[in-house]
Write a protein that binds this DNA or RNA. Structure first.
Length: 884
RNA sequence: GGGCGAUUAGCUCAGGGGGAGAGCGCUUCCUUCACACGGAAGAAGUCGUAGGUUCAAAUCCUACAUCGCCCACCA
């Protein structure tokens, strides 16, 4: 190990380390009765997907919590797999066969589905391979897929159960139709966007004038739908129209006679106060139509061209029809005016085509009964969100939940297990495929549609564990899972539904205790990362530049509880450098192990007690941070400890003892170095698994501290480490640091070479003498001091630069070099600063309210600080007087 | 229309009632036997605006401004 390369090279290490983990079998968990398990299910990436920054962040978070749990000795299982992603996959395969000049109808249902499976065989493993490159410690031996045979059984059981309980039902409703994907979508799969459009005011003539009125004006954003109008609605209290209710208008262009009805829905203040009602093409109009028993004329084909009901406009695309209808209305004198108008238009979340509200027969889930217990579970804290504010978002949605349209007019997916008998009218859901009607024995046909992909994803936490009957022992042991980490955009699509179905099918047991809603990763300009827009960053490129550990740690540094991430690549740069720092600090320790034998670390010096105390503090901070899912804070604590305390100070403090001390002293410091490094590597491992593993496997540990891999080595016990806490040592080293920095500053100010030894005189009050003398070796070695003379009544040597550290006066003789004007300026500034602070403190300490009401320890602290400043000011005054 | 978050150093962001912090960038010096992906020393901020609470406000409250996001049956 003495020939560790000079720099850390991730590429040379990561592959071999990963293979070793895999060969060791550490990714899988065995059931150990009586030991508390830890389980996490990965949000299954789409089988069509490749790793993006959201995945990189989310899966690092999961790997961090999973690796810590595993090191804590818990049987730990991170379920991994992919989602069949109905629309996305079907689109990919359709593109593929389109290149061969074919449509899916040309290929046929069965062959098309086979093409989908083939596509998955060829490309479905991409993202799993990328997770491995990141070092994610998933259970790869038990990879799941939402179309696995056992998963299909689970999906079918859920559907049949809900069907039989009446929670799944067939309805003829307005749903969201994507004309490009040619399928229904649920409400939350529609993305609304404000669009600049117009409000067209149309004049509809009355069949018979009423009280001198011969027409009504209606306002619409969708003039083409007027072809399907079947009534006009006004508010019942609207004086302008009261007399017209019950009379008839003649629909322009069409000539159909339709009634004027009164309905509370209408807002008299909007537009003209009269609404054209098209029940087949607008959810509100549908409701009005239901209340007034109006016809529902379906004007649109599945591809959003006008249907035969549209008469002269039949066959036109919806936007072409709009143009023609407006032109024709204008020609007929029915177009009153056009206003500018911004309104929200729904788009398909998969292909961004404008959604058509469309009347059709679909399957729905009755959500209210499912939502009630799931609301309660969050309300009473069985499930908690991190950050907590997302609970309000969850409540708001769940309390206003609407029924879920689950049927999709696709081929790739879980086919709806409902069978119809055309002979006798029997309809039923069945776990087994049926050939004949159970009532009349006639041939039956299966529903053509498949289920919403989210219908199957909602079962992920228990279907992947073998529910309902494949591996009941896994369910019993690993369910509920401990934490679910995900992006906020699938809070409703996925998380809420997992809580509902998870509780329903597991006797009310929640699917996970904690939900982490992680920040969204935006690009440096704050825009959404998008492959198609070219605004994204590829995690694979980042790993190429910074290593997997560099990327992971750089992401962790950016995670905070309340802010999205504007991706800052400089954090990855400093993380890569951090990995290299860890590497080289370790290399230094390894290179200085002559005569080493493993053994208990025994603190012999203040420095030893200090670093052990700081290590104990780090361990506590990391435990608290990870328990609270505060990844950014935890990463910073690790970075600060390792770099600023261990490398910058302890290793420097250790050097003189390593090279100058006797064998016993050397062994003592070696044992502290190895112990601190060992513990720090364990604490760092969840965030930086590769570099820590590579170093740790070569650490010369005692047999009882060894493990086949750092990945399964015991996690540091912060309670046990707390025995090292030592505030005295921390104060002493803080003082040493202050003196060293003051001397170094003198050196830097006068450009004295680091190789030139300085002779330093310190004037210290009696109570500081012991410290300075006791640690004089440290001070001399760290500040490059030759002789260090300390006394309470030291005289300032001639030609000295001066520095202060609290009540210490530090004289650095620099023959001929000292610029007394510059010294005076600098000390003057220091004095001014100290003076301002002391004035502020004195004012505070003279304030009766402060003395009476502030916490005593605050007052005490301020008094101590004031005394310190008074001393420092006195020192500065003396020095300034000498320079005058 | 309702809700949430943000506004702190040139940039990206932590912090969260009592001495303004980090990374990157910048300035000066240093290739000293772990590391130049390094070391040392520095410069740099009226903590968005206006009120309020408090002995004490960057931190809590209210309003406003700006930016971002979510929800809502905005003909």
């Amino acid at each position: 190990m003495s020939e560790m390369p000079k720099g850390y090279d991730p590429k040379a290490v990561e592959g071999a380390i990963f293979s070793a983990w895999q060969a060791g079998g550490y990714f899988s968990a065995k059931i150990v009765e009586g030991v508390e398990p830890y389980s996490v299910v990965i949000p299954p990436p789409n089988v069509t997907g490749s790793l993006h920054m959201g995945h990189a962040l989310n899966n690092t978070i999961q790997d961090v919590v999973v690796r810590r749990a595993r090191m804590q000795g818990r049987p730990t299982r991170w379920v991994v797999g992919t989602d069949h992603a109905g629309i996305a996959t079907q689109n990919k395969v359709e593109q593929k066969i389109a290149a061969e000049g074919k449509t899916r109808q040309d290929v046929g249902r069965e062959a098309f589905i086979e093409e989908c499976w083939e596509w998955r065989r060829l490309y479905g493993g991409t993202i799993i391979g990328q997770l491995k490159a990141m070092g994610c410690s998933c259970d790869y031996d038990n990879e799941r897929f939402t179309m696995d045979p056992s998963y299909q059984v689970a999906v079918r059981k859920v559907f049949v159960d809900w069907f039989e309980k009446g929670l799944v039902y067939r309805g003829n409703r307005i749903i969201n139709w994507c004309p490009r994907c040619s399928t229904a979508l649920s409400d939350i799969e529609v993305e609304h966007e404000d669009v600049d459009s117009h409000l067209w005011h149309l004049r509809y003539p009355l069949k018979e004038p009423v009280g001198g009125i011969d027409h009504v004006v209606v306002a619409t954003t969708r003039p083409e739908t007027m072809l399907g109008d079947t009534c006009i609605a006004v508010h019942p209290d609207d004086e302008r129209y009261k007399a017209l209710v019950g009379s008839t208008v003649i629909l322009p262009l069409v000539g159909r006679e339709i009634p004027i009805v009164a309905d509370d829905y209408v807002d008299p203040a909007f537009g003209s106060g009269a609404v054209k009602v098209t029940p087949a093409h607008d959810p509100n109009d549908f409701e009005i139509g239901e209340r007034h028993d109006c016809a529902k004329i379906n004007l649109m084909n599945a591809d959003a061209t006008i249907a035969d009901e549209g008469g002269a406009y039949a066959g036109l695309d919806r936007y072409e029809a709009r143009k023609r209808v407006i032109a024709d209305l204008d020609a007929a004198g029915a177009l009153v005016k056009i206003d500018e108008h911004v309104h929200s238009v729904g788009h398909c979340y998969r292909c961004h085509t404008v959604i058509e509200p469309w009347l059709s027969d679909q399957w729905f889930v009755d959500m209210k009964p499912l939502a009630a217990p799931a609301i309660e579970a969050v309300r009473d804290g069985r499930v908690s969100f991190h950050p907590k504010r997302w609970e309000n978002v969850y409540f708001h949605w769940m309390e206003n939940i609407r029924d879920w349209c689950i049927s999709r007019q696709l081929w790739w997916g879980h086919r709806i297990p409902v069978f119809y008998c055309d002979a006798c009218g029997w309809t039923g859901a069945s776990m087994d495929d049926l050939a004949e009607c159970p009532t009349c024995s006639a041939a039956v046909r299966q529903d053509e549609d498949v289920l919403d992909t989210w219908f199957s994803s909602q079962l992920w936490p228990f279907a992947t564990l073998g529910w309902p009957d494949e591996t009941p022992e896994d369910i019993a042991y690993f369910y509920p899972t401990n934490v679910l980490s995900t992006a906020r955009d699938i809070l409703f699509l996925w998380v809420a539904r997992m809580v509902m179905s998870g509780m329903y099918f597991n006797e009310g047991t929640i699917p996970f205790d904690d939900v982490i809603i992680h920040p969204t990763v935006f690009n440096a300009e704050g825009r959404r990362m998008s492959k198609s827009l070219g605004t994204g960053v590829d995690p694979l490129d980042l790993m190429e530049h910074y290593g997997a550990d560099g990327m992971r740690f750089g992401l962790m540094l950016q995670v905070t509880g309340n802010q999205d991430i504007k991706f800052a690549e400089d954090k990855l740069l400093s993380s890569r450098n951090f990995a290299n720092k860890i590497w080289n600090a370790s290399r230094f320790v390894m290179m200085n192990l002559e005569g080493f034998s493993a053994g208990e670390p025994v603190a012999e010096t203040v420095a030893d007690r200090w670093i052990l105390s700081r290590l104990a503090n780090l361990s506590a901070v990391v435990d608290e941070g990870l328990t609270a899912y505060e990844f950014g804070e935890t990463a910073r604590a690790l970075y600060d400890f390792f770099w600023n305390e261990f490398c910058d100070w302890y290793i420097e403090l250790a050097k003189s003892r390593l090279s100058g001390g006797n064998a016993e002293q050397r062994l003592a410091v070696q044992r502290i170095l190895v112990y601190v490094l060992d513990t720090a590597l364990r604490l760092l491992h969840p965030m930086m698994p590769f570099v820590t593993e590579e170093i740790w496997r070569n650490l010369p540990l005692a047999e009882e501290d060894r493990a086949p891999s750092l990945m399964i080595a015991p996690w540091p016990d912060s309670a046990e480490l707390s025995r090292f806490a030592d505030t005295g040592a921390e104060a002493s080293i803080a003082a040493v640091q202050e003196i060293v920095v003051a001397i170094r500053a003198v050196r830097a100010r006068y450009g004295v070479s680091p190789r030139t030894k300085l002779d330093v005189v310190v004037k210290a009050p009696e109570h500081e003498m012991l410290l300075v003398e006791g640690e004089s070796a440290l001070i001399r070695s760290l500040a490059g001091v030759g002789t260090l003379a300390v006394s309470p009544d030291a005289e300032k040597p001639a030609h000295s630069a001066v520095a202060t550290a609290g009540s210490l006066e530090i004289y650095v003789p620099l023959e001929g070099l000292v610029d007394f004007d510059a010294e005076r300026d600098r000390l003057g500034k220091e004095r001014e600063k100290a003076g301002v602070e002391l004035d502020r403190l004195n004012k505070k300490l003279g304030n009766e309210g402060f003395l009476a009401k502030a916490a005593p320890e605050i007052v005490e602290k301020d008094r101590a600080r004031a005394a310190e400043l008074t001393d420092a000011l006195a020192v500065l005054d003396v020095q300034l007087a000498e320079l005058a």
